[in-house]
């Protein structure tokens, strides 16, 4: 489904991504972790073309993301993305946030869009808040709306960039629960997170990045039992003792 092959990227002289290769199969949940600045966000943004890679290639559902002829907007409409800082549209109600893409990109009728949005808001436990504005919601609620907004496009895969790291501890689980449900429903997911509990529960594979490189890419059990690289061990011991 998502194939990243030898992807490298530079910001000027600085190499953010260094020959990254990993594949996410349909229905698979891959957790990406690693120290700050290791390029996790950049990698995940390259998957839907929000950042361009310098060399290598990335294919999503058989379409080359960095291809000249690829209709990037169309491709993006089929990949949901959830950001660390939620990024709900502040001037629209929760319902309108979940409807906007359906109306303007998928050209659904407003009845159909509203039905779908209502259903999804119910699914993430926020149906009573449909008429509110993002600034009137807690962080955890906003993030669940953001997930609903992504799902409203009926995506073939979902990308998450540290979806819970801007949240107060008591709200993290509300968001993780929604994500666990999604994973168990068979959604293809690429999740940048340091929530190892989430990884334990639903991840198929863990990718560990350091200094732009994918240092480890192994099945969950293997990763937690015996991480090959010293770097990964050290990192993991740090975040697990938090």
């Amino acid at each position: 489904m998502i194939e990243i092959n030898h992807a490298s990227k530079w910001y000027g002289d600085f190499q953010v991504l260094d020959d990254c290769t990993t594949h996410v199969a349909k229905g698979e949940v891959v957790v990406v972790c690693g120290p700050s600045g290791s390029g996790k966000s950049t990698l995940i943004k390259c998957v839907n073309g929000l950042e361009a890679i310098g060399s290598g290639d990335i294919n999503v559902d058989g379409l080359k993301v960095n291809g000249r002829k690829t209709n990037l907007n169309k491709l993006r409409s089929r990949i949901g993305m959830v950001f660390q800082s939620f990024e709900l549209f502040p001037h629209m109600s929760v319902l309108d946030n979940v409807m906007l893409g359906q109306l303007k990109v998928l050209k659904r009728s407003s009845d159909e869009a509203q039905q779908r949005a209502t259903l999804l808001l119910d699914q993430v436990g926020l149906s009573e808040h449909a008429g509110k504005y993002p600034a009137q919601l807690s962080g955890g609620q906003q993030q669940r709306v953001a997930i609903a907004r992504g799902l409203a496009m009926d995506p073939i895969a979902m990308l998450f960039d540290e979806p819970t790291s801007a949240l107060d501890p008591e709200m993290i689980n509300d968001v993780l629960d929604v994500m666990v449900d999604l994973a168990q429903d068979g959604m293809t997911m690429m999740v940048v997170t340091h929530e190892m509990g989430f990884a334990q529960k639903v991840a198929d594979r863990i990718v560990f990045m350091d200094e732009g490189k994918i240092v480890e890419d192994s099945p969950k059990d293997e990763f937690f039992k015996a991480q090959g690289s010293e770097r990964a061990k050290e990192f993991l011991s740090k975040i697990l003792t938090h």
């Binding site: 929000l50 907007n73 993006r76 993305m81």
Partner: peptide, 19 residues
Amino acid sequence: GQRNAGKAIGMNEWQVYRY
């Protein structure tokens, strides 16, 4: 961030500005 959020749901550049 808002620009990216707009692009991420597949809106073209004009739509991102407009909406």
